[in-house]
Design a protein around this nucleic acid. Structure first.
Lengths: 252, 252
DNA sequence: GCGACTTTGTGCGATATACGAACAAAAGTC
DNA sequence: GACTTTTGTTCGTATATCGCACAAAGTCGC
C-alpha cells in the first residue's frame, strides 16, 4: 500500500471513538487528547465532526457518544452471516444443557462474543454480542488460541496482559502453550474459575468444512452447581453434536 | 462550528463503514462507492485505511469487516452507565413476568436496544443490544415518540418509512399522533402484532428524577399465550414498579 | 479470441487538513 | 485576589487529501 492510500484523518477519528471505551462516557477535548496522544486541535476537529454527524453530543465542555455510534459495530453483526447462523444452534444447546451458551471469535488478544443464549446470570459481568474477554483465561479463548500455530499463539500471549484473576488462573506462557497442545489433541478446553470465582466453562471449536477453526462455542455453569470435573461428562457430547451440526453449514 | 472544524475524510470513512450494514458482508470498491455516493478513489483510500488498521480484511477484490469494528459500537455500551444500570432490573422484571424484557433509546426514526433479558425466542428476528427496529410500530418506540413534542414527533414520522408490516400495523400519521396523546396521558403503549404476527408487547417510559423520558422498557409475549387485552392486566404493574425503582437512580 | 463493458489503480493540480505555537479563558491553588 | 496550571480556540503554513481523467486489468457475451 502506498503512503497516500492511507487517510490519517479517518484513522485519527477512529482512535478518538475508541478512547471513549477506556474511560467514562464523558470526555473533554484535553482528556481525549491525552488518551489518544493526538494534538488537542486535531482531537477537537474529530469530536466536532462526530457531533455534527450525530454520533456524539457536545454540551460545550464534554462530549458523549450517542446510540447512533452503535450503527458502526452493528454493521458487522448484521452483515456477517456467522452470528445469525449460530444463534438457533446456541438456543437449542442452551436449552438442552440448561445453561448459558455462547459463540465468539478471536480479535488479537481478546475473544469477542458474536452470539449468546443466556439461561441465568452467573457472571458478575454482563455479556452480550460485542463483549470482550481476555483470550488466555477463557475457555473459548483457549480453543481459539490452540487453533493458531505455536509461534502465533506465543506472539499473542506475549502481547497479552497475563493477569492473575483468581488463585486458579494460569499465567505462565509455557503452561498455556502446553495446555493448547492438549486442547488441540482432545478437541475441547475447560476453564475452572480462572476468570472469575464460581464460574466454570467448557468450549469446543467451530470448524468449517475444511476443518479450519473459525469460531468457538461454549457452555458456562456455576461451579457450585457443576464442578469442573463434571463439565466434560455433562456437556462435551452436547457441544460436539452442535459442532457436527454446524460444520456442513460453513462452506469456504 | 466553522467550516474548517469538520474533518470530511473522517465523515467519509464512517459513511463507508455504515455501507456494510445495508447489504452483505463483502463489498468491492465500486459497490461501496455506489452505496455511499463517494468517489471510488476516496472509498478505496478509506477501505485500505480500515484494512491497515485491522478493522477490515482485503483479499484483493472484496473488503469484509472484522470483529475489531465492534470496538467502536461497544465503546458506547461500555461507556454509558444506562445499559449496565438497567440490566439487573430487566433481569428481575423478566423473571417475574416470565417473558422477555428489553430497554431501548431513540435514534432518529429507530429504537436501539441497549439492554435485554431474553426468556424464550418468540420473534423471527434476533434482538441484542445494538439491534434496531422502526419506532412507529414498536411499543418502546411509541413511548419514546410520545415523549417528544407533537411537532418533533410529526417530523420523525415524516422521515419514517411507514410500512404495513401486518394487517394490524398503524401507518396513518394522524392515527399515530392520536395514539401518542393517549400514551402520554395513560403512561404506557401496547402493540398488538403490528410489527410481526404473533407478537404483543407493552412498554413504559424510563424517566429521570426530573421526569424527562430517557429510555423505554418493555415486555414482549407471544400473542397465542397472552392476548393483547391481557397485556395491561398482567404486566403493567410490574413495568410501573420497575419504572419507579429506576427513577431515583437516574440523576441529572 | 475479440470487442464492449465494468472495475480497479494511479498521476496530478486544486483544495482541505494537521500541526505547533500563540493567545484567551477557565479552573485550581495558596 | 494574584498566581500557576490546565483547557479551549485561532491562525499561518507545510503537507496530505480529494476528485478528476486516464490507463490498466478483469469480465462478459458470443
Amino acid at each position: 500500500m502506498r503512503e497516500t492510500d492511507f487517510v490519517s484523518g479517518f484513522a485519527r477519528g477512529l482512535k478518538v471513538i475508541e478512547a471513549f471505551g477506556e474511560t467514562r462516557q464523558r470526555l473533554s477535548i484535553a482528556e481525549a487528547s491525552k488518551l489518544t496522544g493526538l494534538d488537542r486541535a486535531t482531537v477537537r476537529r474529530s469530536l466536532l465532526t462526530l457531533a455534527e454527524l450525530g454520533y456524539a453530543d457536545y454540551d460545550g465542555k464534554f462530549f458523549t457518544l450517542t446510540p447512533k455510534i452503535l450503527r458502526l459495530g452493528h454493521a458487522y453483526l448484521a452483515a456477517t452471516p456467522l452470528p445469525a447462523l449460530l444463534q438457533p444452534h446456541l438456543d437449542t444447546l442452551s436449552e438442552k444443557a440448561g445453561q448459558s451458551a455462547s459463540a465468539s471469535v478471536l480479535d488479537g488478544t481478546e475473544i469477542v462474543y458474536i452470539a449468546r443464549a443466556a439461561q441465568r446470570r452467573v457472571m458478575s459481568i454482563n455479556l452480550t454480542p460485542g463483549s470482550r474477554l481476555p483470550a488466555y483465561c477463557a475457555s473459548m479463548g483457549r480453543v481459539l488460541l490452540a487453533a493458531l500455530s505455536e509461534s502465533e499463539a506465543r506472539a499473542v500471549l506475549a502481547r497479552s496482559e497475563l493477569k492473575q484473576n483468581t488463585a486458579k488462573t494460569k499465567t505462565d506462557p509455557e503452561d498455556l502453550i502446553e495446555e493448547f497442545r492438549r486442547v488441540r489433541a482432545e478437541g475441547y478446553a475447560i476453564i475452572d474459575q480462572e476468570l472469575e470465582i464460581g464460574l466454570c466453562s467448557i468450549a469446543v471449536p467451530v470448524e468449517n468444512d475444511r476443518g479450519e477453526t473459525i469460531a468457538a462455542i461454549n457452555i458456562g455453569a456455576p461451579a457450585a452447581l457443576v464442578p469442573a470435573a463434571e463439565m466434560k461428562v455433562r456437556y462435551l457430547k452436547l457441544l460436539k453434536e452442535t459442532q457436527a451440526a454446524l460444520r456442513p453449514l460453513l462452506r469456504r
